[in-house]
């Protein structure tokens, strides 16, 4: 019976084509540095899953944010594990994405026809940083509060529109419940949506162009 179900699905989906085009692509002879894009993707998925689990207990309100995180760490089974993965995974992801970017630069893989892949990549790096920035505030502890105060203050030094940017980020002139709430919305809805869309385009382009060869002496 399973075989029939498989055949029925295969006829309509075409597992073989999927497999060939997605996983069984020809690769030039390269090295482990070329796995860092896939590592970024894995970390993105891991952050997504652990992040979803964290929202089951986390509350984005100044009254309860800190207590709810303490509860996750001390009260819930394996809360420390879920939060630990999300916490360290965030730093690791920024690092891995950055090194991936350096590798693409070093092997000059950003050249024709991959300029767009590179530009989308810049978007990916910036949104990854955005995830870090917005996520850092959520525990609502001293470090988070002051880091965001300073971060938004820096954004406020932009000539002419600085004050507007500062207020837009904080949801008002000062850090408040509104700041926490909009950082939360950005962290779990807005930025991940942008990130997922950009990753989709990034991967499409990579599959379309195939992996670049490592440059040789002659290049």
């Amino acid at each position: 019976m399973w075989k029939n179900i498989y055949l029925w699905l295969d006829e309509r989906i075409g597992f073989n084509d999927l497999y060939k085009n997605l996983l069984d692509r020809p690769e030039p002879k390269t090295n482990w540095w070329n796995t860092l894009g896939s590592a970024s993707l894995f970390l993105f998925i891991l952050q997504g899953l652990t992040g979803i689990f964290l929202t089951v207990y986390y509350t984005p309100s100044p009254d309860h944010a800190y207590d709810s995180i303490t509860y996750i760490m001390e009260g819930v089974a394996f809360g420390w594990l879920i939060r630990g993965i999300h916490h360290w995974g965030a730093t690791l992801m920024v690092l891995v994405v950055f090194i991936h970017m350096l590798r693409v630069f070093y092997t000059a893989s950003f050249k024709y026809p991959r300029e767009l892949t590179w530009l989308i990549g810049i978007g990916l790096f910036l949104t990854t940083l955005g995830m870090g920035f917005t996520g850092y505030l959520l525990p609502w502890n001293q470090k988070a509060y002051w880091a965001t105060t300073v971060g938004t203050q820096i954004a406020g030094t932009v000539p002419f529109v600085g004050e507007f940017i500062l207020k837009a980020l904080r949801g008002g002139p000062e850090l408040s419940a509104l700041t926490l709430q909009r950082f939360f919305a950005a962290h779990i809805w807005i930025i991940p949506a942008v990130l997922a869309a950009l990753i989709g385009i990034h991967l499409y382009l990579i599959i379309k162009h195939g992996e670049s060869h490592s440059p040789t002496k002659e290049d």
């Binding site: 899953l49 689990f53 089951v56 819930v76 089974a77 394996f78 809360g79 594990l81 879920i82």
Partner: peptide
């Protein structure tokens, strides 16, 4: 390693 603790994490209040 991630999946099993996650299930426990989710249903913890019910236990």
């Amino acid at each position: 390693i991630i999946g099993l603790p996650s299930v426990y994490y989710l249903i913890d209040p019910a236990l």
